[in-house]
Nucleic acid binder design. Structure first.
Lengths: 344, 344
DNA sequence: TTGTACGCGTTATCAG
DNA sequence: CTGATAACGCGTACAA
């Protein structure tokens, strides 16, 4: 009832005594408008509290100014950093971020495509494991929807992406343990549907091989990047005879679970068991002792990926240099969860 | 170049040999369409991979099918649960969620209003502390943008909201400590700009008053709901002489920090110091010992708030029963961070 | 420098 | 039950 209709460009034009087109020019900062007119229009806009109707703009420009963020039930800290980075880059831009968590990219590919199409997105940011899904990328290319990928491990050279070197990072983490004197090193892998899990395992194995340490299969357990899955995996590793003197978990949540499992058995970290995590998420600083971990610059990766996406969106189609695969630096953060093993 | 234009309603109409309006009827499940025609249209839609253009729909219906979520730098676990609840309710609906983290609601009210208007949202979900901001609510009402509030503490009866009883919850937590025999109880308040911080303090003081325990001002420290702020506050409390035997932190992040501060001083939890948190966030289960805490049903609150918002959006304006202020139950979860105080 | 006519894709109105 | 026509608010192409 009381809901007064929003002012349109015509209302502004009438008030400023110009044509609608001129208002449009002012709104979009187009040249060829006298300062005097510009001022008049601005005043009218303010008086009427005018805001362009995005739907109408989108209709003629075929743009929605919406960018989707696709991710699949990762750890909370990961999602938050992802969003933080993406949103930071979007600050001051006209684009808005639509969050699109999906159940399982591999299971229902068409559903996801339908979702993206009906959501009328201008572009999407693909977080793992969607960022490694060839079918999804093909579909996106077919419908002409630009995308940028975060932490892809395969199919590089197919458009903008931002990643870190998971292999090298895992290798460094393992080398740290080896340098401390550890020989019996257990590994808790992450979700098998994330290719990063394999990459990190490869890095670990390379470090062990270089040191001439055989890695027995019973020293490798698989988790799902969650605390609970890590707990189960850690319990199994600690039940081995002899148990590992160090455990390398592929993310911080599972590393925290490993510390909890150690406590269950009366083991002290790091005296009886060294633990290394991955990600440098909040959790790594909250647990005791603070976790030695690999800093994965998730926020920066999201920022950079969004930056590349905006580049694509703003350059004329077919124009501009092809954006490639960017790699950001990681860092081994040695804190207090690792120490030399006890003498046997 | 190759980017084929999307099929429009007219293309479908041509293929199905009907008028555009009929296709529209089928798309929107309107009555008065023969089954035969309906089938023909559906076939054409599938063949052309037709998806309605949301911008065009939005233009004539003056709807964007976008719902905003406004929040202000809260803890990661809180944001994630908030989004989870909101998105779960949105599942299967046409509406999409746009995330709108803001710097400070109080500082730049007009900026936020401008943001909401230009973002062309159909409605917004207000999380604390925006949910307590009278000016913001007034503005939203003026531009006719429906909103629902999460955890408001003031200005009730002004539209749909979902909350829990912070006063009663804090009181229960304090009573638990008192029942264990604690008399020297420290409090770490949350961000002063969140009204919940005051409510929780009131509850704590009520419990203490009932037990005839005086609460000295030096036993109250203020934090910002973050781990780091909690660390500083906890250090000050533990430096008191005599120090508290129990500390009640107003969220789990600060409670975890309290445990870390205790360790710094060689104190054991819960033998030397009992710690109670608030929220039952992931962090409460990850730390050791697991935190005694108040379960705040954030996800359910967001779900319910979104549900009410959709009700408003779907009912004709001015019609339908006024939606009120809903209160969800909290729960004291007694875990292992609380125990009777040592005999002095 | 400014204005006019038209179209973007969809739905509402009202006629058939 | 179905279809023609006119909006919705804005930008493009072109003219003045």
């Amino acid at each position: 009832m009381r809901k007064t209709k929003r002012a349109t460009i015509v209302d502004v034009a009438r008030m400023a005594e110009v044509s609608a087109k001129t208002v449009s020019r002012v709104v979009n900062n187009e040249p060829h408008v006298t300062e005097a007119v510009k001022t008049r229009v601005h005043e009218a806009m303010r008086a009427l509290r005018y805001h362009p109707n995005v739907a109408a703009q989108g209709l003629v420009r075929s743009r929605s100014y919406l960018i989707g963020l696709v991710y699949e039930k990762p750890s909370p800290s990961y999602v938050v950093e992802l969003q933080k980075g993406a949103l930071e880059r979007l600050h001051g831009e006209r684009f808005r971020l639509v969050v699109l968590p999906v159940e399982s990219v591999t299971e229902r590919e068409d559903e996801i495509i339908a979702l993206l199409r009906s959501a009328a997105l201008d572009a999407v940011l693909l977080a793992p494991p969607a960022s490694d899904h060839a079918g999804l990328m093909a579909e996106l290319r077919e419908v002409g929807m630009p995308f940028a990928r975060i932490s892809p491990t395969r199919l590089l050279g197919q458009g903008p992406s931002v990643a870190m070197d998971d292999v090298a990072a895992a290798q460094e983490a393992a080398e740290h343990l080896i340098a401390l004197g550890h020989r019996r090193i257990g590994v808790i892998k992450g979700d098998p549907s994330h290719a990063a899990a394999d990459a990190r395992l490869v890095g670990t194995m390379q470090a062990l091989a270089k040191a001439g340490i055989p890695l027995r299969t019973e020293m490798i357990e698989s988790g799902l990047f969650t605390f609970d899955s890590g707990l189960i995996a850690a319990r199994r590793l600690l039940a081995l005879d002899p148990p590992p003197t160090a455990i390398l978990a592929q993310n911080d949540d599972m590393a925290a679970a490993t510390m909890a499992a150690a406590r269950e058995r009366g083991l002290h970290v790091p005296e009886d068991l060294s633990v290394v995590g991955f990600d440098d998420s909040d959790i790594s600083r909250v647990v005791w002792p603070p976790l030695t971990t690999i800093r994965q610059p998730v926020e920066e990766m999201a920022y950079k990926a969004m930056d590349m996406l905006l580049h694509v969106l703003k350059s004329e189609p077919g124009q501009g240099p092809e954006l490639g695969d960017v790699q950001l630096a990681h860092e081994l953060l040695i804190r207090r969860s690792t120490a030399p093993p006890k003498a046997d």
